[in-house]
């Protein structure tokens, strides 16, 4: 039993259209972690997940799921995995209970009414169990998709943008469910465009762009390594131009010259703040207020993708 529950080795995908969607992906997912995969539209997140789950064939490379090759030992490998796809697709005329039971059967498990009831209750779907899917709201349909993915008690759960188009309350609710699952030992891989979601939930974060993994790291480490701090000064008098004496600093005037932003690296011992304040004093620039802020994951992410 290795520490990695999923091992992806030199994975490539070239679609039949000739588009190279994944380029030499190497990635290990740790047992029991919550891994967030971030990336702009078209980066290759869904492609990667679909290949792991067996929905799309890889062009080359190998994937091991708990040690099982996901093509050669597809039965063992797939039994471990549950998938909530990005697009909601349902059999509109089926009832909730029927479609969830179907999923369990499909994955080779004998019926387990108690377990299914438990899953549906946890997702607040139990009262709706006999409703046809077409009578449910979008958010509820998404929860049905989650129930379907959990129906066979998977050890690994893929959530491809589970909270897209979901209201704040339900999102919070889903985050709690994810935490519960994680506590039960389920490994969760999540893609999202809500950076806040990754920031709140993830143990580790991977960023993918143009089919390549740019960075994979612990969330805290990533924020530390790439996070920049900013000092915001609200000026007494608006300024149009920075004086020459301040040219060497990473300074920027914003809000019609009413505010000045100084960006510095928080990891450095000398942040240069003291020096800067002295220079400002010498240049007779007065300010009313000051505050520092830390860049969010979102900004880190945008910077990373821009650099590519």
């Amino acid at each position: 039993m290795t520490n990695s529950i999923i091992q992806i080795n030199s994975l490539n995908k070239i679609y039949s259209s000739g588009l190279s969607a994944l380029k030499d992906i190497n990635l290990n997912i740790k047992r029991g972690e919550l891994f967030a995969l971030l990336g702009p539209n078209g980066a290759g997140k869904t492609t990667l997940i679909n290949i792991i789950c067996g929905i799309i064939n890889p062009t080359s490379g190998q994937i091991l799921i708990d040690g099982w090759d996901n093509i050669k030992a597809f039965r063992e490998a797939r039994s471990l995995v549950g998938l909530v796809p990005q697009e909601i697709s349902t059999d509109m005329f089926e009832t909730v209970l029927h479609t969830v039971n179907f999923s369990r059967g499909l994955f080779g498990k004998a019926p387990a009414p108690d377990y299914i009831e438990q899953v549906l209750c946890a997702l607040s779907l139990w009262e709706k169990k006999d409703n046809k899917l077409l009578t449910l709201s979008g958010g509820m349909k998404r929860r049905v998709m989650i129930a379907k993915a959990l129906a066979h008690e998977p050890k690994i759960l893929f959530l491809d943008e589970p909270t897209a188009g979901v209201d704040v309350e339900l999102r919070q609710d889903m985050w709690n469910r994810m935490k519960d699952l994680k506590d039960q030992g389920v490994t969760i891989i999540l893609t999202t465009h809500y950076i806040e979601e990754a920031e709140q939930m993830a143990d580790r974060i991977g960023v993918i762009d143009h089919g390549q993994i740019i960075v994979v790291d612990e969330k805290e480490a990533l924020m530390k390594k790439l996070g920049k701090k900013q000092l915001l000064l609200t000026l007494q008098m608006p300024m149009q131009q920075l004086p020459d004496s301040l040219k060497g600093y990473e300074l920027e005037l914003i809000h019609d010259g009413n505010e000045m932003v100084y960006t510095f690296n928080s990891q450095q011992v000398d942040t240069g703040i003291a020096q800067l304040l002295k220079k400002l004093d010498e240049a007779d620039i007065a300010f009313r207020d000051m505050k520092t802020s830390e860049s969010s994951l979102e900004e880190i992410f945008v910077n990373l993708v821009k650099k590519q």
Binding site: C53, R75, R78, E87, L106
Partner: peptide, 18 residues
């Protein structure tokens, strides 16, 4: 054809069945 059309075929393809 229906699962292909509605997209529910993802489930058949990701299930441990041949």
């Amino acid at each position: 054809y229906m699962p292909k059309f509605t997209g529910t075929i993802y489930e058949l393809l990701s299930a441990p069945i041949n």
